[in-house]
Design a binder for these strands. Structure first.
Lengths: 187, 187
DNA sequence: TTCATTTTTTGATATAAGTCAAAAAGAAAG
DNA sequence: CTTTCTTTTTGACTTATATCAAAAAATGAA
């Protein structure tokens, strides 16, 4: 919890009453490796803050898993599409490591927006940051070669390489596992 | 202006005083084809609402233009990274058609957040929507073939095909112009 | 209309990356 | 330690897409 509060203060400094209300709305979850936070078809009604651990989001395409994001310490994770629209999720969220999370329901978060302008500000700022990160990821993914994408990962997100299996990383990078293995073998 | 107000009401219904304050902060711009809203190296201090026209965002890679987004009627456009961080932009924003825009400066928008909680809510909701649209675009871009990406564009954004030159569309789809031409020739 | 410029198409060839199959290496279980 | 199962690597081959070059078509100006 301390860690969550520490992290969100890098986005925006909440007032004491807002922090207190937020505290009241959060629920701690401890889950083991390979457990699911969400499976496709469900509506995602929770937003999670990942205090410790690793998580991936993936969906099925032609019978294969496509991993399209990872979450680690200090990340907010949810199926954004489902959480925002209230529609059934097309993605699955699975733990890659045993993890400690803080969950808040959409209803409680919505209520907090009404009661505390600064919580809505914090979330607005968080969305801004998540938006530009995604935009960067998009540009890197679409307009660069497999090798360049791997080199970027090595440079900017080496923790992913240390904690996630090659198959999932290859999928995340949008390349085959064999190609990734070959790229890697030529340092 | 009517159109902007109409459009934002699909996100969230603002109070009368908020609408009035927003009205006071907007500035109308009419620009011609090929004019620039922003060139790389500048800090983007404005957010634009595109009432009528067409716009593209692109950056330079190995001497070539890479078009990574288009804007049309009812879109909010800016260099999000630069606007949000205040850093110099790596992208250029150029008009594809003569356009009518409404501009708001970051300073004025920030002031509006303080004065009107509901304007911050509107923007938070807009970011949510833009985030999930970008996420969809990301998944489509990275995990599908050139043909599938083109078919998607044809299905979901046919207006792009009618209004934008093939070279820019190919760049947007992350494929060469020749390949796009060949895909298209086989209906 | 005619000429010049830009955009799109077509052809030949090269290359990055995928697929299928099997071997090797690593991790887990008894 | 073996045995088993999973993950990673290697090899041979295929395929999608890029690149380079030139022709054709479209657009725009005079």
């Amino acid at each position: 919890m301390q860690q969550l509060f520490q992290h969100i203060s890098t986005y925006y400094k909440l007032s004491e009453p807002a922090l207190e209300a937020l505290y009241e709305s959060l629920e701690k979850k401890e889950l083991g490796r390979y457990e699911y936070l969400l499976t496709q078809g469900q509506v995602c009604r929770q937003m999670y803050f990942l205090e410790k651990g690793a998580i991936r989001g993936f969906y099925q395409l032609d019978g294969k898993d496509i991993t399209h994001w990872f979450g680690f310490e200090n990340n907010f994770v949810t199926s954004f599409h489902s959480f925002i629209t209230g529609e059934a999720s097309v993605e699955n969220i699975q733990l890659e490591e045993s993890s400690t999370l803080w969950a808040i329901s959409k209803d409680k978060l919505t209520a907090l927006y009404d009661e505390h302008h600064d919580i809505e500000r914090l979330v607005r700022i968080a969305y801004e940051n998540y938006y530009i990160k995604l935009e960067e990821r998009y540009v890197n993914a679409q307009f660069r070669s497999a090798k360049e994408r791997y080199d970027d990962l090595l440079k900017y997100s080496p923790h992913i390489l240390e904690r996630i299996s090659l198959g999932h990383i290859a999928s995340y990078l949008g390349i085959s596992q064999e190609t990734l293995s070959r790229i890697r073998s030529k340092h």
